[in-house]
Design a protein around this nucleic acid. Structure first.
Length: 308
RNA sequence: ACUAAGUGUAA
């Protein structure tokens, strides 16, 4: 049984989900009775194999689920955005005297915050506070993100202030969220304040931050500013990725950089992803360069993608 | 005992 358990854990940690399931079956067939730990691994693995229904069925058949069983189920359900099932599981868990851990709570916050369920978001916050959890940067950032997504940027900004006055320091993720919120809600004036704050707080821009900034600037028609950010990438030691280029496509063409774009196709397969290929296809077709679009299409095939 | 929160395409 020890050997099987070790194998199970190795496959689990190594993301070899199918092997994990096989090991579990073999273990059961060899006459061993898997303990709750082993069963928890299978639940998680079934979720990772995208079979949420099977995972739930398997979970319900665990004779003595422990608090980890519940936390595994809850955080996976959160990723699947299955909020009703999350609620049921949390209630059942608490009825048994277990309490959701911080990972489950953060998953829950994020699950409702992303989808404009503001009421539920504050209910989860209330639960967290009543369970005595300290608010962390991550928690604050999810709340701020939730508010930005429903267009309440002013509230989000006052939350930022509250966060700081409670002694928690915002990070790049917090500012990425806020800046995107400002652009999407026509509050560009706030953006420069936020950028100044970041500077004062000594936070440096990472690639996601820069990509977000470029995308927002591009969508607001501020091509020069977006180009400045693009050119500043290498002095920040950042390498543009597929996100960068799919945001910058229209700008590179209007600034006469079509050559740079087609030279991208010489890059390694790993640089590309499906969205970038689709963006380029769409882009070349729209600007009336079907031959270039065909080149992109062929490159896409050699990179092993199938058109969707 | 796995995992944390922020970015891109078409319709």
């Amino acid at each position: 049984a020890q050997t099987y358990m070790t194998l199970l854990r190795i496959y689990w940690l190594g993301r070899m989900h199918n092997s994990a399931v096989e090991t579990f079956l073999e273990m059961s067939n060899s006459g061993y009775t898997p303990n709750t730990f082993a069963r928890n691994i299978v639940v998680d693995v079934l979720f990772k194999l995208k079979d949420g229904d099977a995972a739930l069925r398997f979970f319900r058949e665990i004779p003595t689920p422990n608090f980890l069983s519940y936390n595994i189920v809850i955080s996976n359900l959160c990723e699947l955005n299955n909020w009703p099932e999350v609620c049921k599981t949390v209630k059942e868990m608490m009825r048994k005297g277990f309490v959701p851990d911080d990972r489950s709570l953060i998953g829950m916050l994020n699950c409702v915050g992303k989808f404009h369920k503001t009421r539920e978001m504050f209910q989860v916050l209330g639960l967290m506070i009543s369970l005595g959890y300290q608010l962390t940067v991550t928690t604050w950032t999810i709340l701020i993100d939730g508010l930005c997504r429903i267009g309440k940027v002013c509230l989000a900004i006052s939350l930022l202030k509250k966060m700081k006055s409670s002694g928690v320091h915002p990070n790049v993720v917090t500012y990425t969220t806020l800046i995107k919120g400002c652009f999407e809600n026509d509050m560009p004036a706030e953006v420069s304040n936020l950028l100044e704050n970041m500077e004062d707080e000594g936070l440096s821009h990472d690639l996601v931050f820069s990509n977000t900034l470029m995308d927002c600037l591009a969508k607001s028609g501020m091509y020069d500013e977006a180009t400045t950010v693009f050119c500043s990438l290498h002095e920040r030691n950042l390498t543009p990725d597929s996100y960068t280029y799919s945001s910058m496509l229209p700008i590179l063409s209007s600034s006469g950089n079509l050559d740079l774009l087609s030279s991208l196709l010489n890059g390694p397969d790993a640089f590309f992803d499906k969205v970038l290929f689709n963006s380029m296809l769409n882009f070349y077709c729209r600007i009336g360069r079907p031959r270039l679009a065909v080149k992109v299409f062929n490159r896409m095939m050699t990179a092993g993608y199938t058109p969707d």
